[in-house]
Amino acid sequence: MGRYVIRRLLQAIPVLVGTTFLLFATVYALPGDPIAALGGDRRLDPQLVARMREQFHLNDPLLVQYWYYIRDIVSGDFGTTFRGVPVSSLFQGKFQVTFQLSITALVFEAVIGVGLGLWAALRRGRWQDQAVLAFTLLLVSIPTLVSGFVLQLVLGVKLKQNTGIDFFPVAGIQDGMRSYIVPGLVLAGLSIAYLTRLTRTSLMETLRADYIRTAVAKGLPRRRVLGRHALRNSLIPLITYLGADLGTLMGGAIITETIFNLPGIGQQLFQSVYLRENAVVVGIVTVLVLVYVLANLIVDLLYAVLDPRIRYE
């Protein structure tokens, strides 16, 4: 097991190199000159421009620039922006906000999605099942932009006005964990729908399995057949989805962060792409890729726990 973990972590290295290089190359290929952009409407002193281009190795070929970047990353230096701010200082606290938001969303997704999915599967073909399916369709059709603003208005403003309940903060992170409830729900929306459907299908498929028939023939109570024999087997495919989704949630948090004014990494990423701050963009993505790789590693390890047929040597 230990060797497997180490091997998997080593496998992450080529993944990281590949993704960072692709990103580096994409930002490199963007039109416009980031140094010239620093001056805004003013023309900058050509000498200064030349010096900065030299300082940031902008005259070197792509591969050389990339090499410098990777060399610094390995020694823990994320570099500085063109304005001279250390990139790592831009990350301060922001990853934490995004991570907390994504984890909140993931919890909502797991609880609501799995719960609804199981419920629907057990009432397959009846109105409850149809209602859950219709609900997921609705969730998929509402863009985050809409659900975000609507929930902000309903839970944050109207609820307070009409009932005096002031439980759901809908802007900023001053209220600690509570600040993440509504944003987390909004961010989870689409994933809840997918996971609900996946859970429903997975349990229905498990229930058709021969070993479920065996469990019934053993005279076990229905509760036990479902809770013991069916549940664990139907969870296995869901874990994969949840693991992969953590990365998606973190990368896709930008709209939610903007609506709810959360100082997360999404906004930083958007700004940096806009300003062509190569070092920042690639830095952020490097961390996201790491999160993704780790989440998938955890999924694979969980897999082995849930399904004894999978063993890692």
Partner: peptide
């Protein structure tokens, strides 16, 4: 009691 044809699929793998 009853036993089934294909014991691999009739026993719970986990």
């Amino acid at each position: 009691a009853m036993i089934f044809q294909d014991a691999l699929s009739a026993l719970n793998p986990v």
